[in-house]
């Protein structure tokens, strides 16, 4: 993304150098280009040959000199950008700044949207895995209901009867967590190969990265907890005695 700083028309040479120095010192800026009054006119002439007659009829050259600063890719989303623009605007000799605020905003809201979608999908997946695990356990409990019944009638405590199912649910959740981490790992490896070059600027926004060690632990623990609660919920209905008969 480029920002254009328009300078005052009769700006002294010294000021131009100062501004250029300032631009170059900022770590947001990749490169700068000075466009003099004459150069601006040439560009205009090139781009709009039909309109050049109007300009020629004017006594003065309407094009102010300017600096075009190209920002580094990864600084576009940085919140330092607006501070930088403000600072430049207050520099002596700079008359106006032109940049596509819209575009900056759009990119920011895009990354917000991406995050929201991420959370939404994450929530759905957690719910889905909860339901899947509790259903797996329910089927399991159902297929072993004779065994549960005989355990109950022989004097097994509810805890004793629950433990194998709870263990199974927890292990399922744990394995699920490990598997998803593995798949994430593979995905992070593979996806940039296919998308990397075409994503350009967006690859910075999406910023593929591995989870930290504690986040990995969180995913696995979370899986185990989901499995545990899932199996507990499907068991509670089954272990109630049939008081009706």
């Amino acid at each position: 993304m480029a920002i254009v700083f328009f300078l005052e028309k009769d700006i002294p040479e010294d000021n131009i150098t100062v501004i250029e120095e300032q631009l170059k010192q900022s770590d947001l800026v990749l490169k700068t280009k000075y466009i003099s009054t004459e150069k601006a006119r040439e560009i205009f002439q090139e781009k709009f040959p039909d309109l050049i007659a109007i300009v020629k009829n004017l006594d003065i050259n309407p094009f102010p000199p300017s600096f075009e600063a190209t920002l580094k890719e990864n600084s576009i989303t940085s919140n330092k950008v607006s501070g930088f623009i403000d600072m430049m605007q207050n520099t002596a000799g700079v008359e106006d700044v032109q940049y596509n605020q819209d575009w900056v905003e759009r990119i920011k809201s895009f990354s917000r949207l991406a995050k929201a979608i991420g959370f939404f999908l994450g929530g759905i997946l957690i719910l889905a895995s909860f339901l899947i695990i509790s259903n797996v356990i329910k089927l399991n409990v159902f297929s072993r209901k004779d065994e549960i019944e005989i355990l109950q009638l022989s004097g097994g405590t509810n805890m004793f009867i629950r433990i194998p199912f709870l263990a199974e649910g927890t292990i399922l959740g744990l394995l699920g967590g490990v598997l998803s981490l593995f798949m994430l790992f593979v995905l992070i490896r593979i996806l940039p190969i296919y998308l990397g070059s075409s994503l350009g600027v967006f690859s910075e926004l999406i910023s593929f990265r591995y989870l930290s060690f504690s986040q990995c632990g969180g995913v696995i623990t979370g899986g185990a907890v989901i499995g545990f609660i899932g199996s507990l919920s499907s068991l509670s209905r089954f272990l109630k005695p049939k008081n009706i008969n």
Partner: peptide
């Protein structure tokens, strides 16, 4: 949740066996 204490006093032969 305490009924297991009663059941542990008993040995039951079910009419339908209820073997696994």
């Amino acid at each position: 949740h305490k009924i297991y204490l009663l059941r542990r006093k008993m040995g039951i032969v079910f009419q339908d066996f209820r073997l696994l």
